[in-house]
Structure formats: C-alpha cells, structure tokens
Write a protein that binds this DNA or RNA. Sequence first.
RNA 1: GGAUGGGUUCCCGAGUGGCUAAAGGGAGCAGACUGUAAAUCUGCCGUCGACGACUUCGGUGGUUCGAAUCCACCCCCAUCCA
Length: 411
Amino acid sequence: MSKALDILRERGFLAQITFEEDLEKAFDEGMVTFYNGFDPTADSMHIGHYIPVMAMAHLQRAGHKPIALMGGGTAVIGDPSGRTDLRKMLTREQIDQNIEGIKRQMLKFLDFDSGSANAAEIVNNADWLLKLNYVDFIRDIGSLFSVNRMLAAECYKQRLERGLTFLEFNYMLMQSYDFLHLFHEKGCTLQTGGDDQWSNILSGADLIRRKEGKPAFALTFKLLLTTDGVKMGKTAKGALWLSPEKTSPYDFYQYFRNVDDADVAKCLGLLTFLPMDEVRRLGAMEGSAINEAKRVLAFEVTKLIHGEDEAQRAQQAAEALFSGGGMGGSIPTTEITEAQLSEDNRLVALVALCGLCKSKGEARKTIEAGGIAIDDTKVTDVDARIDAAQLQGEGLLIKKGKKSFHRIVLK
RNA sequence: GGAUGGGUUCCCGAGUGGCUAAAGGGAGCAGACUGUAAAUCUGCCGUCGACGACUUCGGUGGUUCGAAUCCACCCCCAUCCA
C-alpha cells in the first residue's frame, strides 16, 4: 500500500516530486528518513511553516522519520527565492533560542520520543556549515555544480534581471550540501519543502545522485495561497503566528473563520487532521451554509495549535460577540493601571494602547469614520474620555469595525 | 576601474525651484450592501494633545526669500565595457 504519498496527494499537499514511482516504492518498502528546512529567524513559527509541519506529521504517522533542519548556518545568507532584501544576521544565542521556541511548537505535531524508530529529530546546519573549509568545499562540491544549469533555474532567472550577489548565489550549494550531509549522517534520502524551494531541493537530490550514485528524492508542497494568489496569513498586525503571545488564539481563530469561501476546502485538507470524507462534505457547502464549514475549520486549526480549551474559548468569544453584545470566552484583553489611565484617559489613547489601531492618529480617524464602538454603541466624539468606573468588573469592550474586539480592564 | 541610467512616503510609480505631505495604482483600515465570504460603491491612508504644528523624497554640505526638484562630494543599485 502506498499510503504515505496517497495521504499527501489526497489532502492536496503535493506540488512537485522527482521520480515519483521510485519514491512511492521506497515509502512502501520501509522507513524513509526525510528532512525539511526551517529558518530560525523568529522564536515562533508562523502559518507558512504550518504546511510542511503538517506534512511531516502525516508522513511520520505513516511510519517515516522526519528531521527538522534549522537553518542556523544558512539564515545569515538569505534565500534568494522571491526576496530582495538580505536577512539580518542573528547571533548564535538568538538562533538557539529561536530553535527552542520552534521545537516546542513542533512537539504538538511530531513525536520526538527517542524510543521509537522513527522519532523526529532536530538538527542545525550551523553545526557543519560553519566548519567548512572554502577550498575543500569548492573543490568537492562546487565542481559538481554547473553554473549554466543554475542560471537556468527559475529562481535565479528572475533574480538575474534584478541583481544577485555571489553570496546569495551560493545558497543553493549550501542547501544541497545539507542534504548530502544528512544523507551521510542520517541516511536521509528525501528533502521536502515549500514549492518555492523546488530548485534548491532538486539540486541537493542531484548532488547525492551525482556524488554518491545513490537515489535521493525531492518533494515540494503547495504554498498556502489565497485564491488571489497572495500568500496566506498576512494580517494587519503582520504574519499569523503560532505563538499566543504574538497572535492571540482569538485572532487566530478569527483569521480562519474569515477565509474566502473558495479556500475553505483547501484549508481543511491541509491544516486539519479531519478525515477526508468530512473535508469533502464540508468543502462542498455553498452559500451561507459554508459558514458551518468555516466554524469547523477555525475550531480545528485553533485546537491543533492552542489546545482544545483555548479553541473553545475563542469560539465562544466569537459567537458571543457576533450574535450581539456579550462578553465571555477569551477576547484579547489589555490590563491598564490607574496611573496609565490618569496620564491619558482619552479613548484614542486606549485604542492605540491595546493595539486595535497603530497610533492615536489612526484611532482618531477610525472614530471619525464611525468605526469604533464601546459596548456596542458607536462612538462619535473624537475626544471621548474614559474613567476608571467604566473599567470595573468585566471592563470595557471596544469594537473596531465589525470584526475586531478588545477588552480593557483595570488592573 | 570606465560609460550610461537610477535611488520618492508599506509596495509599484509620477513629480524636475514656490500652487507638493508630494499625481495615479496596489495593499491596508473604516462605512454601505452581505453570510464574520466575494464583488461593488464611498471615505481615510507621514507623525502629533490636530481649524494648527512638526518631520519626510539615498547621505552630507552648499546656492536661494524658498529645494524632492539646482550645485559639490560621498554611498548604494542596474545595464554595457574590462
């Protein structure tokens, strides 16, 4: 039974695969060790990392061994795929800290228990890349790369028109070397990643085939794009993060509660573990009935990331708020002190403080546009002030537009 | 190293001495309509205790009553040549 690939195929993960039949056979014959790269540029994953992690989880459940490679060594170069700015250099300590944060989030999806044969592992390519000797490297590895072929790769073709430094040009070699290294050290024969990584992954697999004469495979996942072709997960506040400190469970829930109709089925397959029968049933809903599917989607995804309790609370909060009025559940809340309040008790200050608006000016403009309501009453006075009494007990519910809520209570 | 063309607000991109906080588009936010969707229409869209004030047009100096716009030097980018 070729379960592993079928599962990914059915759920809509697959973008491109090399030697599909051989890979399928390898999956069927026994445990395949595979890896997926992650950039430890922050201490939390965001929704873009989620697809590979889900795919890794599916593959591990099918009996294969996942390795999460942290790009501690390559992060300092910056992947040229689709990006124009060089990334900031991070210190070793920051990177290690970030890796810890990311690992903690992966624990929910991957089994790192060393007791099992296919336990997941985390490695950091800084451990081997930083030790490389330049001359050895270009002789052993560089000699196996054809510049002509590299230039033909789609990711460089575009960059050639805009400019590409030699530093970035080397990214492909380093990533290929990672694959070779893991092939040697861990018997890793497959690299996975987002579809924007196709060229890099492919060249790694090629390197192993050429240098070792052994099979190695490349597999990419579809990127999480909205129907408009834009990367999903962009919000007013930036990326959609998996850590509750960076994106509250409520906001996280709301993001998926609000996805485009056309994206619902895709998201259910990719982002949840729901059986495909259920995914198809929900995805086929039309008109306002599809709101039910969105509820399920938002709940399931929030549950996977933040746990069932948080998901429940986010859902209750959303439903209480949208069905008119009430508090309850976990609405993002800000506590403020008497001192803060006496310093500036204008409503615009509070709205800016809690993050509903980026600045007091923006808060003022939003009020002028009729976009701010307190306890469901539209505010018309730009100079409105709030006193301590209003913040007692349950506090004050500030609403911006139709979908953003924030509660303010006195500490 | 040489020649040429460039660096404008979140992004693209006009502007070539005062009428310019800087056209237009995109993104974003808000309003109407809706299903917490999409499409459409409308408003906002540098910052601020805001009928006013302050800071922006790669950097630093200069010319001028007045500069994103002119001059000098410097930095960066692209294309061609080496």
